[in-house]
Amino acid sequence: MASYAGRGTHGRVVEQLGYRVVSGEVPEGATLDPRELVGELGVSLTVVREALRVLASKELVASRQKRGTFVRPRAEWNTLDADVIRWRVACGKGESLLRDLQELRVIVEPAAVRCAAQRRTDDDLAALDLALGAMAGARGEGEAAAADAAFHRALLHASGNEMLTRLDDLMKAALQARDSLVHGSAGAAGDPVPSHRAVLDAVRERDPDRAAAAMADLLALARADADHALRTARTPEGRGRQRR
């Protein structure tokens, strides 16, 4: 996921303030004084105000007359926002995020592939074949993560259920964070092609039970990879890779 850090002074301030809020360095209910931030961060008042507007759009902060700008309760944050998710992972709070994502996938994806096995079209199979081919030929974590996302997006589309298809929008940012963590962790992810091919073969052969079982096996491997990546990230060597 792209960060604000490469977007000049404004982006740097968004990154700093967003990380502080999500990490709890600036706690819920605390007031953010723009003029104090000007002196602390060495930027203009305009830059600070623009950055706070970005955080407000993510529902991290709000402004009220006589109270100023303050950190909203976590329950009100847009926790599905890509930047909020990235900040959670960066500050070491990714474990609960990945747990929630895993539980959602276990509930949704086996049922989705059952539908896909019954309703898939030739176009759906072509999209899945293309994604699997990209997965097999991926060079580097970016290509691997993109191919994985494309495969699961195509599976949801193949379900023929518009609501299931839209779940990709719900899960996209969390999946990107998960894939970045897993594919960037040495030794975490094994060859993903066989487990994904097993799902595709069952969908191709219109076998809902086998498709659901293959997806359950795939998700078990995904959980093991995520657990390994989290353990690695907690070591000094892992933290060093994350900083790079």
Rank of each mutant, 00 (worst) to 15 (best):
residue 186 A to Q: 11
residue 48 V to W: 06
residue 122 D to Y: 01
residue 60 L to C: 02
residue 143 E to D: 10
residue 117 A to T: 04
residue 104 L to C: 03
residue 139 R to A: 06
residue 182 V to S: 01
residue 11 G to Y: 06
residue 118 Q to N: 01
residue 171 M to H: 05
residue 5 A to K: 12
residue 181 L to H: 09
residue 176 Q to S: 07
residue 160 G to D: 00
residue 204 R to A: 15
residue 22 V to E: 08
residue 121 T to D: 04
residue 137 G to T: 12
residue 120 R to K: 13
residue 122 D to N: 14
residue 152 H to W: 00
residue 127 A to T: 04
residue 25 E to L: 09
residue 58 K to P: 04
residue 179 D to C: 08
residue 180 S to R: 15
residue 215 M to D: 00
residue 228 H to E: 10
residue 241 R to N: 08
residue 240 G to V: 07
residue 171 M to I: 08
residue 30 A to N: 15
residue 92 G to Y: 13
residue 198 A to P: 10
residue 45 L to E: 11
residue 102 Q to R: 07
residue 203 V to L: 03
residue 24 G to T: 05
residue 234 R to D: 15
residue 24 G to A: 06
residue 213 A to D: 12
residue 27 P to M: 08
residue 97 L to E: 11
residue 15 E to D: 14
residue 18 G to L: 04
residue 129 D to M: 04
residue 17 L to C: 01
residue 50 E to F: 04
residue 201 D to Y: 04
residue 69 T to L: 09
residue 105 R to I: 00
residue 222 A to P: 01
residue 11 G to M: 12
residue 155 L to Y: 00
residue 140 G to Q: 01
residue 200 L to E: 01
residue 188 A to V: 05
residue 203 V to F: 06
residue 84 V to C: 09
residue 38 V to G: 02
residue 187 G to K: 14
residue 1 M to Q: 08
residue 193 V to G: 12
residue 158 A to E: 05
residue 4 Y to I: 01
residue 136 A to Q: 09
residue 132 L to G: 05
residue 227 D to V: 10
residue 77 W to G: 03
residue 205 E to K: 11
residue 90 A to E: 14
